[in-house]
């Protein structure tokens, strides 16, 4: 257990360093929210006028949605790093050391959560610049960061699990592309729940992305704190399940290699 925490720390440091050294990543992180918020914000600005939409400002409605969407996509690619480690022999070298096995996955999941947090701060600040008001104040702001990073942690665990099973970048890219957008659109990220077709509303209820979107929006508006806590608990359950899946995938990888 002792080695679990120290090893997670050592490996997390490595992942953070890598992120900082790939400038394209920083650029994408800064540019993407700008694109999402300006384009979607302008494009759908008038949907709030639809009777029953239930929001006054679309940018205020949209910002938490974009935070969660970025959290989803940012962390869904997390498995690419582990595939690189497999193909370059880094994983073999690590597995030939006494490194705590669980720390290998944990460090990647934690890295995804931290990355999402930084991205979320940037998006939220930019959203505020465009006129989105964080009515929930600092607690609301922090709650959104927590919800985004929790979803990110779970998605990253699933992505790493999938990477360890398929061991191919192409497969991971295909799966992320296949599930990423449906998961986003089967949520209230862009559209109010009341205006969704019934079947989408039903599907959305089982979608962790939607739990995070609804709770983030509540946090943005500073309402329904009990509901936010409930969603956070469900997301924590999702993370636990996802980590269990990736741990099993890692065990299967080590058995078969």
């Amino acid at each position: 257990m002792n080695t679990y925490f120290t090893d997670t720390g050592y490996l997390l440091l490595r992942h953070l360093r890598t992120t900082m050294r790939i400038p394209i990543w920083i650029a994408v992180t800064l540019i993407q929210p700008v694109i999402w918020l300006t384009i979607y914000g302008q494009l759908f600005r008038r949907v709030v006028e639809i009777p029953g939409f239930g929001a006054d400002s679309y940018i205020q409605f949209l910002t938490p949605g974009v935070v969660i969407m970025t959290a989803l996509f940012g962390s869904a690619w997390s498995g690419m790093g582990i595939i690189e480690d497999l193909s370059e022999g880094v994983m073999d070298r690590m597995l030939a050391t006494p490194v705590n096995r669980a720390a290998i996955i944990s460090a990647r999941v934690l890295h995804a959560a931290l990355t999402v947090t930084v991205q979320s701060v940037i998006i939220l600040l930019f959203g505020m610049l465009l006129g989105a008001r964080v009515a929930g104040g600092i607690p609301g702001f922090l709650a959104i960061l927590l919800l985004g990073s929790t979803l990110g942690a779970g998605m990253s665990a699933l992505s790493n699990g999938l990477a360890l099973v398929t061991r191919r970048e192409e497969t991971l890219i295909a799966v992320v592309n296949f599930f990423g957008l449906p998961l986003t659109f089967l949520s209230t990220a862009f559209m109010a729940a009341d205006l969704m077709p019934g079947w989408i509303r039903t599907l959305a209820r089982a979608n962790p992305v939607n739990w995070a979107v609804i709770a983030s929006r509540d946090a943005m508006l500073g309402r329904n704190w009990g509901g936010i806590a409930g969603s956070a608990a469900m997301l924590a359950g999702f993370v636990l399940a996802a980590v269990w899946v990736s741990t099993q995938a890692f065990k299967a990888y080590r058995r078969s290699s």
């Binding site: 120290t6 440091l13 490595r14 890598t18 193909s87 070298r93 690590m94 006494p98």
Partner: peptide, 21 residues
Amino acid sequence: ASGVDKWGTGRENLTLQAHLM
């Protein structure tokens, strides 16, 4: 397949390996 982290420096790679060992 060498197994060094190409985004880390030589010193960082060795330091991490020393900790893990």
